[in-house]
Design a binder for these strands. Sequence first.
DNA 1: ATGGTGGCTTAACATTGAGTTAATATTAAA
DNA 2: TTTAATATTAACTCAATGTTAAGCCACCAT
Lengths: 226, 226
Amino acid sequence: MKSSKILLVDDDEDILDLLEYNLTKEGYEVKTALNGEKAIEVANEFLPELIIMDVMMPEMDGIEACGEIRKNKLLANTIIAFLTARSEDYSQIAGFDAGADDYITKPIKPKVLFSKIKGLLRRGTVEDQLIEETATMRIDREKYIVVQRDTEISLPKKEFELLALLMSKPDNVFTREKIFASVWGDDIVVGDRTIDVHIRKLREKIGDDYIKTVKGVGYKFVDVED
Amino acid sequence: MKSSKILLVDDDEDILDLLEYNLTKEGYEVKTALNGEKAIEVANEFLPELIIMDVMMPEMDGIEACGEIRKNKLLANTIIAFLTARSEDYSQIAGFDAGADDYITKPIKPKVLFSKIKGLLRRGTVEDQLIEETATMRIDREKYIVVQRDTEISLPKKEFELLALLMSKPDNVFTREKIFASVWGDDIVVGDRTIDVHIRKLREKIGDDYIKTVKGVGYKFVDVED
DNA sequence: ATGGTGGCTTAACATTGAGTTAATATTAAA
DNA sequence: TTTAATATTAACTCAATGTTAAGCCACCAT
């Protein structure tokens, strides 16, 4: 298994050194940055799986940097964790807006940090973090609705998750196996026609043209621009 | 949208003028104060959303003033940001934990400051949503009642907190987990049907249409405009 | 203490509708 | 043309939620 790449961002070099030393010893591939701007640079090249970033930094703060990093599609699956001084800080709210995945509170306890890092990396492909959005359709996970040209459509759970999956990579074909694994879970076993029926119901609600069948392969979402 | 109110506090009039000029140009409503005492006075009247205050000032320093300001309940949601010289070790200042929300380092770069202010006020906006109020319903935490089209409804604690939570983000789905964590607390364990019963009682009192069930996901508050 | 009151939880049972299946029709690739 | 893959429809199943009432406990006034 290839070692995970972690980017550390903090304006305090002592903290950087400490964490880098320990994480490298644990077998991670580590890079560091002293500020937000530098972090964006390094992130775009290094493509880390995890970024641990101080919220409060001179020049460009963590929240701002986080927003910038999220703009890079290649970093869509990268997990961003903020370091915050107080656990109940309001910046948490702003941070989640910016696209942060987790918070680590200062002062840092190495043992806690390591177990947290393992947990975050285990999550692996955090496809829930993707912004499922195309020109004419948008998935709103918070409200659990689909917005299609200003029309709000509410969908049952399975249909919602299915559509969200397909929309996570427009034009990409998803095989039945992948759909099962992602929407139903590896262990659940259901009949062959179950997916078809859900596709049917989706097409009924959002229109036939959005979901295309690739016979013998799977399904894909294509945006309808008229 | 009404413009945000900002209070600037610094003993250097040049800085005050510079910032006031630029922030006013950006569309903010700005007032200034030359010292801590003055700041408290102005803050209590002006009720700004954001206070940017120098840490080091004659008479009463920023930390002391911050503590005083925090005593005013009307300013509970006001964000306080300290201006600090870069060389200063702000961990020391943060140690005081006077209630500051953020730090801005000198020398001030307008561009950075403006983006930071926007960021800070965005938190405020999020916080504003905590004033649970929709077109037809309003939560009054002081009186512990709900006002629905001029009708006052008094609710028991759990029902009140539950409704307040749902109303904190109208249209957003809250999972049972989140509801438990927020209204009951992480450690308290109660039966599965407890939430349902409280939902039932709420629906009985405010009407069925306000709380919508998203099966397999959670509950959401939707405003009824008729 | 005593008894009443109301909030909260639980348990038992009812209901709903999301999800699945099965049976049949249609499609598109070879 | 052939045929496996997918579409379609409706019936069915069951887990999730709704509903009701009873019971417990804290609190309050007597």
